[in-house]
Every structure is written in C-alpha cells, then in structure tokens.
Design a binder for these strands. Structure first.
Lengths: 207, 207
DNA sequence: TAGATTGTTAATCGATTAACAATC
DNA sequence: TAGATTGTTAATCGATTAACAATC
C-alpha cells in the first residue's frame, strides 16, 4: 500500500498530531506504543490510527506495537520535515511576532528565515534575530533563501496581494491567517488558520 | 427540517465563512446573493451551501436567491452571536496579546472581557484596555462577568491545568492554542487551533 | 504456547454532489 | 411567460469503524 494512493487530507492532518505525542513519549523514554494507547491519548479510534499509518508502510510489529523513535523518523519523512524547510512570514504585527517567537519551539524543522512588512515604520525592526524587510525585497530574498512556505499575517484587505507575491516568487504552499479566502493557482497549497471562524463556530455549541 | 436534527460539525464550521462573506457583500450594498455566487467566491459547491442553510430554515427565495442582510441576521442567530458573548483569555504572551488586539476586529459579538497570566511580572500590565489579572482571580472574575468561552494561549505544559480551571469556573467552551490535546468533561466543547500542526501538514504537499 | 496487536478487508456510517420539481 | 434559483430527494463518494487472520 506504500505506492501511489491519494491520501486524504484528514489523514495528513492527523500525522502531526501523532508526531507530537510520539515526541513526548520519546522524551519520557517510552520505546513502544500501541494504536490502543495512541487512540486513548488522542481521542481517536485505534483502527483509524493503524489505517492512517498503513497508507505509508508497515511500521508496526504484530503483537508488540510501534517503536516510538522509528515511527517518529517515519512520520517526519512522510511530512517531509526530515530536512529543514525555510519559511517566510509577511506581516510583522502582533500575530506575526507571536509566530516568529514560537519559531524556537517548533524545532520540528519549519524555520522562519525571513520577515516582511509593508509599513515603513516596521522595516528594520528586529524580531527574534530577524530584521524585518520591505516588500520590495520579498521576491529576491525568497528565491535566495529557497523559501518554500509562506505565512500571511496581514489584514484581510492585503492578504490576496501578498499571496500573489508569494506565488510569483515561487512559494509552494501558504498558511493564511487573514480572515479571507485567498485564491492561488491549483499547484499552490493553501491552509487557512482562521481563529475568528473557530471562535464563532464554538459559540454554536453553547446551550 | 428546522427541528431536532444533529447538525454535523462540518456544516457548523462553514457558517462563519458564509457570514464573513455576507458581511462583505452587505458593506458593498449588495442586497441579494445566490448559492452559485457564494460557491464561486468560497470555493464550495452551491448545492452544499443550499443544503447547509436548509438545515436551519428556508432563508432563500426560489428564482431570486438569498437576501444578504436577512441571511446575516439568521446565521448570527444560529451561531448565537446575535448577543455579545463574554470571552476570557489565559496567557498574556505574544499570541495572547495578538488575539486581544484582534478583538477590535471581531466586532462580531465575541468580546474578550478578561485576561489572566500566571507570571507575576505580567500581572497588572494593560492589553487593549484590559488589566492582566492573576490566576487566583480567574474563578470569581469569570463568574462575575458571566464568561462563557475561554481561550488558552499558555505553553503546552500548563494548558491542561488552565482548562481545568476554566471548567471549574463554569466556562462552556474552550479554544485551545496550546499544542496539546486537552481533556474536559463531555459537556464542554473544545476546539484546537493548532498552527504548528497546520504548518507541518502543509509540508506534506510540497513536491 | 497464550496473549497481544498489527495490517487489511468488509461493513457501516456520514458527507458531498447531482438532479429536478416547485416557484419566484 | 421564460429564466433563474431554491429546497430536497436520490445517487455518489469517501471516511470511519469493526472484525479477524496473521504473527510477534
């Protein structure tokens, strides 16, 4: 089953969740884990976890479970974060700063290597050892640093223009925090991190 | 179809997306919109949009479409954001500050009315006209201000403890930004806003 | 060997999409 | 009236879960 199968988005979204918990286990020197254990901790069905992993290979041992460190290695390979991935961020506001500082935490190979802002007053400021650059420099810097993923933390009104610049510069995927649906060519992947929508949908479940 | 039906989570998550775009239309004085138009702008199937809305009532007119302002009103009612919902936030770090400042933007009736932090140095600071309070005051303040939703922006190690405090104080729903699965009683709704996971799953789609 | 747990198939469940009568 | 678009049913598609042979 390792070969050409289209893996559903739902599966891909669970992999980082598995990875994070496995990292915790590894830190605690737990060497083996079963789909049972994982399911309990992550509120997921064990069969689902086994099936998710089986899309990519046979990582477990019958009767035993999964070797924690081996599974970590495999999931990192699947997610392509076994090598450092250079990331750029546009929008040095509060949220942008928060993400840059978070950077240290995500030692999981996603590294913010450049920060841009349109506002003159922000340019030159330092955020977490990175100097904020002007938008004019976006394309050359992205190409020089081989940035593959772009993060958008600008107001909604500017998000589409930033996305366009990312695409023109050759960015392959975008994480958009602006509360608007941005349009990009189909070969560019966009995820929306939309906490106002998240908050509003929570309200629905109030009694 | 208006009566007792369990509405799927996927449907509820789309409502804020509809709402946001409808608000834009309203600002531009567009009075009517079809499921066709909506689908095109939001990258969704028109049939799905009609079906989503039909779960809650007959809001459209055959041959015409939906009245923008009427639909806005209805969706706000469905999401229960037709009245102000008091929200509390714990964790006055970069991300917490970002969300508090965002507050102004979400005039959509989700109002952050209290901010807490465990760190002594943060207590007393002002963020967007709110004084940061100590964790000791969490329970009484939440009850006094009738806070219904809690936001967690503390490090992963502290998230579960904060969730517990929220639950004990009577909070009904939680938006968790900490990269960990928190456990709460089944009557409390939790959404996870997890951008490290989001970023990692993006990497999968790189070539 | 007996017990545990995987990988995988089959069964179930749920969500999306197509199609169309009703009707503005 | 003719054209457009809803609300809704039926068809399709896809994802989750159960079950179990294989095997450590």
């Amino acid at each position: 089953m390792t070969k050409t199968m289209k893996i559903s988005e739902a599966v891909v979204r669970r992999l980082p969740i598995y990875l994070r918990f496995l990292n915790e286990l590894s830190k605690k020197n737990v060497t083996t884990v079963s789909s049972q254990d994982l399911g309990q901790k992550l509120d997921l069905n064990p069969a689902q976890i086994r099936k998710d992993l089986a899309y990519f290979g046979e990582f477990g041992k019958k009767g035993i479970g999964y070797d924690v460190d081996y599974l970590i290695e495999k999931i990192r390979q699947i997610l392509k974060i076994d090598k450092v991935i250079p990331v750029a961020l546009v929008g040095a506001g509060n949220l942008g700063r928060a993400l840059c500082n978070y950077n240290a935490y995500l030692k999981d190979n996603m590294k913010i290597v450049a920060v841009f802002d349109a506002q003159g007053t922000k340019i030159g400021e330092s955020i977490n050892n990175l100097k904020v650059k002007s938008m004019d420099e976006l394309c050359p810097i992205i190409q020089e640093l081989k940035v593959r993923i772009g993060i958008i933390t600008v107001p909604a009104a500017e998000a589409q223009a930033v996305a366009n610049q990312f695409v023109e510069s050759g960015v392959e995927a975008i994480l958009n925090f602006a509360p608007i649906i941005i349009k990009v060519p189909s070969e560019v992947r966009v995820h929306h991190a939309d906490f106002t929508a998240e908050l509003q949908s929570l309200a629905y479940y109030l009694d």
